[in-house]
Design a protein around this nucleic acid. Structure first.
Lengths: 282, 282
DNA sequence: GTTCCGCATGAATCGATAG
DNA sequence: ACTATCGATTCATGCGGAA
């Protein structure tokens, strides 16, 4: 079966209306955060953020299948010495729309942004909010547990020197990591904390999150030939992962060159996969 | 100077009223979670939790010094397949009381409780909500620094051209302004994710948090002879840490045997410390 | 083939200064 | 008073080329 990739240029609030209802198995997205990435997107004021997002989530509720899942990657910024409240307000408002707030995963960023301030430390985590339409939804835990071997080993391969140093050190009042516990363990049960680095090596375009992030949720919440939607596609990390994993995908973005770029990357990945397959058959 | 430990038996909502205003430098507490530890605290229904807690936080706002900090360890439980919203509602209500929601730390539990559910993974993190009265508060960041990654030594050995030339003319982050600050630096500031085990060395008492947790916040937000308060003392982890670190402490609990137990543990720790000091002097 | 080293860059935040 | 812009501060990672 051919895997389709549907990329649409435009504002999600409008473009989503053209999709039929109950057509998507998984939504993974990272919308522009309030007042961030102004150069690319407009930049939404924190006070207006909830009102700006609710029309989108209303449409997402419509297009998601009853068995589907919505994963929202977001983090509130610190303004004037205080954390903004628009994210937690959004959770409350989305529940009024009919969403169930099923879970909150944590993305623990290994390499967070540097900086120093008199009243706070570096922010090294983001929220991964899970929403569902029903209490019953598709979840293929085994799929994540099997690749959990890869997951754990790739995590160990890059077990950074810093992690090791801080393990043994008593400085910092006994805080430290003990990831080495994972060695020699075949299967690991995942938890709701994901420990990943941001990919900061993208050439021209800022990747929102590492591809391991959507990959993990795609494995967990979909099977082959299901459909994944990202209404704020950006550089297309979610769509590329979906395509590689043989899931159909729909992406929406209001920046034309992003749409073009993702289209051509998808195409070149397909071409590469085809020629690899051909080479193997000979 | 003698370090005092003040343990009071009773309900926090009442007992806190007997404390003078602006007398506490740091509050660290882990209140009974909704509907849990029923046997001990009677259990508060999730729907009533906010209303139950607000009179306490109102008193805490009164007794905390303007330069002080309130650290609240809490996590919503999953009820009926959904995460309860009482924690985020509490944040919004406490802001109405006058609290600033300064930061949300994550306690990433190394070895969380094993288990498996059809629709969720193990919960391996808890919230550590930081509240303050003022934008300016005491914070001793140097006290909790962690060893820096090894990359630093090689980098500083030969200051790379990028570090020297990188300036704000490029988009975004301006590194390379004051590299001289970095020479001979071997420690880095921590982040807002705390990664430590759920050690419960309290043999037969309801497990709260590991002592490393209050220790870290006591280091960060107080100095010697400051005063630490735990309005839900339980087995006294916070008070014991404060006492060891030579901070005065106040603990409140409505279970008489907890109060007795903490008193006697504090006493035996002091006795042990005294005899160790005497032995050293001989 | 490994390991090592140099390199670029990231959803940042605060305070001061300017309009 | 209130917003907009600018400067200062700060780590850790994965990649690619070299040893």
């Amino acid at each position: 079966m051919k895997i389709t990739t549907d990329i649409r240029l435009g504002d999600s609030r409008e473009k989503l209306k053209s999709l039929p209802g109950d057509c998507v198995d998984l939504i993974v997205t990272s919308p522009p955060y309030a007042d961030q990435r102004k150069n690319v997107y407009g930049g939404i004021h924190p006070d207006e953020y909830v009102g700006w997002f609710l029309p989108v989530s209303e449409q997402l509720l419509r297009v998601l299948k009853p068995s589907g899942t919505f994963v929202l990657n977001i983090k509130e910024k610190a303004v004037n010495g205080e954390r903004s409240t628009y994210v937690i307000e959004l959770i409350l408002e989305m529940r009024k729309q009919g969403w169930l707030w099923t879970e909150e995963f944590i993305w623990h960023k290994k390499n967070c942004y540097p900086g120093k301030w008199p009243n706070r430390f570096r922010d090294s985590w983001e929220r991964l909010l899970q929403f569902n339409k029903n209490k019953k939804f598709n979840m293929y835990q085994e799929e994540v547990m099997v690749p959990m071997g890869e997951w754990a080993s790739s995590r160990l391969k890059s077990l950074s020197r810093t992690d090791k140093t801080r393990d043994t050190s008593k400085v910092g009042s006994g805080f430290g990591k003990n990831i080495s516990n994972w060695v020699n363990r075949d299967k690991a049960y995942p938890t709701n904390v994901l420990h990943l680095a941001t990919e900061c090596n993208n050439k021209n375009h800022s990747a929102t999150f590492p591809s391991a992030l959507p990959e993990w949720f795609i494995k967990l919440f979909t099977k082959e030939n299901d459909t994944v939607l990202d209404p704020f596609m950006g550089s297309g990390t979610t769509l590329l992962a979906a395509n590689r994993m043989r899931r159909h995908s729909i992406g929406i973005d209001n920046v034309a060159e992003y749409c073009e770029m993702v289209r051509s990357e998808i195409k070149s990945e397909i071409d590469a996969a085809v020629s690899a397959a051909v080479a193997e058959m000979r």
